[in-house]
Design a binder for these strands. Structure first.
Lengths: 198, 198
DNA sequence: CCATCTTTTGGTAGTTACTATCACTTCGTA
DNA sequence: TACGAAGTGATAGTAACTACCAAAAGATGG
């Protein structure tokens, strides 16, 4: 048992594993896109990646997990922590998200959009979505709590995080949705949700 | 094909169907509680309800759907619509929820709590939870939009609804959670999420 | 009351995601 | 080069679901 630090670019074994994992995910997502989620079987994905079905399950605990990606978490946290402390929590969150989104390539945004659409469309994947949702609340709560010097499970901080993520999620079903909608939603929340009768 | 109004207390057939459905759900939830969700098979549920596995799937499209209940939707909508229009949308939502919760028996609340815990604990059920979550956003948005004379898919109204439901959901993970926490969360949201450094 | 039509049901035979296990191969290392 | 560890494939099994068909039971007109 090694120290489990980072195996990044070591032996052939690690490299091969990384390649197999990437191949499985890429072929999986491609097949999902081409023929739909249900119509794609593990066998097909394994075959496309040139491994056995057994091996698939050694890399991903389930078919759904192919879609689960949390690459952006660390980036978001970092972006938030560099926000000046003068900003209110809600504005800091908004600006952190804006910064991260601005830093993505069009391709990244495209892929992320496709992932979200897939999750919305396929019932099985909505479990994944709920998990992501809860994870995001935890993440926002933790990071905001730290900034305010409150405990991580502070009631008000968690409600704040829930409202932020809920506002963001509410934009997911907009047909023509772009990432600016997410920012608009947070702006509206920052303004105190000023709804008035027209 | 009849007029699909309400078959409520008609022929023997309807009554028997209602009984079978209730038996399947009750035995299912009981078995989930007693032996866990995974350990309970459709076969066991069907056997307990004295029908065949085939019949189970005629009543519920999947095992998960046993847990899905939306009895409260109509009640909540009605409670909201009787709120005086002077109240701001957020206060009206809060008070409507408070009224509904106050109207439940302790038993109802207990059962509802158990359902939510089950959904949080079992991965497969979180898909159901996400669906419920989206349905709740839609419901709040629709009802608030009507009150404000805006279209049902109005951007600001949807963000409002997302924030409300997000705030409510954020309280789900509190270990000692009671239904008052949901109201506290909405109060905090109504106050504009006033987070300040201590 | 009976014949008939419709709905509901049980059974059988799939498919697919996923688990467990075991022998075999491949890689890292002394 | 020999040995241990890690990765792989194959096989057999479980359980959620689907499609289908024939039998049973409730509804309906004469």
């Amino acid at each position: 048992m090694s120290s489990s630090a980072e195996p990044s670019t070591t032996g052939l074994r690690e490299r091969k594993k990384a390649r197999t994992r990437a191949a499985l995910r890429d072929h999986g997502l491609r097949l999902f896109r081409e023929q739909g989620y249900h119509a794609t079987t593990i066998e097909q994905i394994a075959e496309a990646a040139e491994v056995s079905p057994s091996t698939f399950f050694r890399y991903f605990p389930s078919k759904e997990d192919i879609v689960l990606v949390d690459d952006l978490d660390a980036v978001l946290i970092a972006a938030f922590e560099t926000q000046p402390t003068e900003k209110s929590p809600i504005v800091a969150v908004r600006d952190a998200i804006a910064a991260v989104l601005a830093g993505l390539t069009d391709e990244d945004r495209e892929r992320e959009q496709q992932r979200q659409e897939l999750m919305l469309a396929v019932p099985e994947l909505r479990a994944t979505m709920m998990d992501e949702f809860r994870r995001n609340i935890d993440m926002v709560a933790e990071v905001v709590a730290r900034r305010l010097g409150r405990p991580a499970n502070d009631f008000e901080v968690r409600v704040f995080a829930g409202a932020v993520i809920g506002a963001a999620i509410s934009t997911f079903e907009i047909p023509t949705r772009s990432y600016e909608d997410t920012l608009r939603a947070l702006d509206f929340l920052a303004a105190g949700l000023p709804l008035v009768t027209d």
